[in-house]
């Protein structure tokens, strides 16, 4: 007798916007832990090690567009995690009602705030 199959195909299962927010919040959390925080610590250590290293880094940052884009990407991950996380907290502490409608609206608001904030950050950094 064959093993009983289990149907879980995320491409075939419709999830609400709040599910998308929750899953991407988790993914951004992992990226924050594995990429953004270690990279920030390395950069920070280099920046404060001496005056020369600070100036050297500043010159490298201003000349290198790809590196600036990478820094922006890291900041965007942090911002996304923050907006999605705040939304989560507001629901967890019953500040926002736990209904499907309010959850969808709060997801849309968090996404719009992230996009505005991301756009402003990009216009400053690039």
């Amino acid at each position: 007798m064959s093993i009983k199959p289990v149907f879980i195909n995320l491409l075939k299962i419709r999830l609400p916007l709040s599910a998308f927010m929750s899953i991407t919040h988790r993914v951004s959390g992992v990226a924050l832990f594995l990429l953004v925080i270690p990279v920030s610590l390395v950069i920070f250590t280099y920046l404060v090690s001496s005056e020369d290293s600070y100036l050297e880094f500043l010159a490298f940052y201003q000349d290198n567009f790809i590196f600036r884009t990478f820094v922006l990407f890291c900041i965007l991950i942090f911002q996304y995690h923050m907006f999605a996380g705040l939304r989560h907290l507001l629901h967890d502490f019953h500040v926002l009602p736990e209904t499907l409608n309010s959850s969808n609206i709060s997801s849309q608001v968090a996404l719009i705030l992230f996009l505005i904030n991301g756009f402003l950050t990009a216009s400053v950094l690039l």
């Binding site: 599910a19 929750s22 989560h88 967890d92 499907l100």
Partner: peptide, 9 residues
């Protein structure tokens, strides 16, 4: 439970 609301939906 992380409140994704699929159950409600």
């Amino acid at each position: 439970c992380h409140g994704i609301m699929n159950c409600v939906s």
